[in-house]
Structures are given as C-alpha cells and as structure tokens.
C-alpha cells in the first residue's frame, strides 16, 4: 500500500510540467526514502533525476518498494484538473495496475479522485557517479531560462565557458554570433538574485540548446538554478525543491570529432 499526501500539491504539478516535455513514459519509484524517478529522453542524450524525500510529505506511507510506470502527458492531463491550492494524495495498492490521484480543495468542499492506468515500462537505471566538478554556477533560474531562450533564436548549440571573467554563453548561427557573459554578483539585495561562480579549473563545453530549453520548463520549481560543469562529463542542471529534494537534468556535451 502506498499513500503520499502533499499539502502543497502545486509542487507535483510543477514537477510534471518541468519534465513532461523531455520524457514520455517513466517509472516512478517509491521507497522509504521518497518518491523518485530516473528517466532518459527518447534519444538517450539527456537524463532526468527527481527526488521528493519522504520527510517533505505530510503523510508518507510506503509499505514496500514499488515502481509505477506512468505516461507523463496523461498524468499531466489529470494533474491539470487539480487546483493550485489543492492538497494532492497519490494512492496505489501493491501489485495493482492503477494509481489514484486525489485532489482536495483547501476548504475541503471539493474532493476529486482520478484513477489512471499504470503501464509496464522497460527502463535502464543508470549509475550516476559522484564527480568533482570543474565549475559550479548558481544563478537566478529565470535569467538562465531567458539566456537559453534568447540564444536559441540565433543558434542551435550553446558553448558554456567558465573562466575568471565569469560564465559565458555563446552561440553561432546563420545570422551571426551571440555572447552573453554573467559575472559573479553577490552584492544583491536578495540571495536568489545572486550569481555565484565556484571555479576550480576553467571549463568550456558545447550543448544542444533544444535540451537546455526543455530543462528550463522546471524554472517555476526554484528561483535558483545550479549548473555543474566538468570537461567531458554531462552537465548537471539542478532545480532544488525547497525542503523536499530536487530535479536534476544531465546532458551529454557535444564532442568534436
């Protein structure tokens, strides 16, 4: 038996909106640690890892580990029916072939439940090794989304370079070249407006903007995005979910032949 109750139900909606463009079907894994997911996009270039820790839920019951295969766009259709202030409960029986989503309005005067069919998904679970990153950039998530959106109107790929100067985003297209440099800026009024750059070594990597733009769909989850870079390793674009966990996107860099 599985029963997870989240008073801030809008978080589930934001998580789904953040990952459903990248991944069609995925197994949600439930254990005593929390509610998690790891899935690759259909071309196996990017990977998303989600963790919602059990402590973050108002009620969390998971009698034994279960993995539930779900179609994310169908799930999003059902979650669209939940109000932004609704309390969301996810329920499933061990060995069952459905999952139930229950939405309660804050005043308890409207209660809906939606039963969705589960699916069997063959998925490969990948081991993500702990890595020392050459550079870690923390910046406002809205600024990062803006940069990715702007650059994708000019080119298809972005070179992200971190040096003493700051973090530079470069693209090239038929019409020309664009460079955007963000310098470390910690003297702002609010911590979420700061750009913080930790650099152990200069790093420069090329990525497909299409994927970066897809990752920025998770922007409403966090004011801050953390971009971890190491030469010849996938970049990690992380949106922390306050008190609960994270959504991390991994993207393989393009490699010169």
């Amino acid at each position: 038996m599985l029963e997870l109750r989240l008073v801030q139900g809008s978080l589930f909606k934001k998580v789904l909106d953040g990952i459903k463009d990248l991944v069609n079907d995925a197994n949600f894994d439930c254990s005593s640690t929390g509610f998690s997911l790891q899935a690759m996009d259909s071309s196996h270039v990017a990977l998303v890892a989600l963790l919602l820790r059990s402590e973050g839920f108002e009620h969390y019951r998971c009698d034994r580990n279960i993995s539930m295969g779900m179609n994310l766009s169908n799930m999003a259709k059902m979650f669209k029916c939940a109000g932004n202030d609704d309390i969301i409960t996810i329920k499933a029986d061990d060995g069952g072939d459905t999952v139930t989503f229950m939405f309660e309005s804050p005043t308890q005067d409207k209660i809906s439940d939606f039963e969705m069919k589960l699916m069997s998904i063959d998925s490969e679970h990948l081991g993500i090794p702990e890595a020392e990153y050459h550079a870690i950039v923390k910046m406002p998530s809205s600024e990062f989304a803006r940069i990715c959106r702007d650059l994708s109107t000019i080119g298809d790929t972005v070179v992200i370079s971190v040096s003493k100067e700051g973090v530079k985003f470069t693209t090239k297209g038929d019409i020309g070249i664009a460079n955007i440099v963000c310098r470390q800026n910690t003297s702002v009024d609010k911590p979420e407006e700061a750009t913080v750059i930790e650099m152990n070594e200069p790093v420069s990597l090329t990525f497909a903007l299409r994927y970066m733009n897809s990752f920025t769909k998770a922007t409403p989850l966090s004011n801050i995005v953390t971009i971890s870079l190491s030469n010849e390793l996938p970049v990690v674009v992380e949106y922390k979910i306050a008190e609960m966990g994270y959504v991390r996107f991994y993207l393989a860099p393009k490699i010169e032949e």
Binding site: M40, S43, H44, V45, A46, L47, E124, H125, L126, G127, I128, P129, T157, T206, A208, L233, P234, Y250, L251, A252, P253, K254, I255, E256, E257
Partner: peptide, 14 residues
C-alpha cells in the same frame, strides 16, 4: 561538426 553522444557513454547501467 560536433557529434552528440548519448548519456550512456558517460553513465553505465546498474
């Protein structure tokens, strides 16, 4: 041009 490798080139199956 640059080649796009898959993520499985970096992370292996467990």
């Amino acid at each position: 041009g640059a080649k796009q490798p898959t993520i499985t080139r970096f992370f292996s199956k467990v």
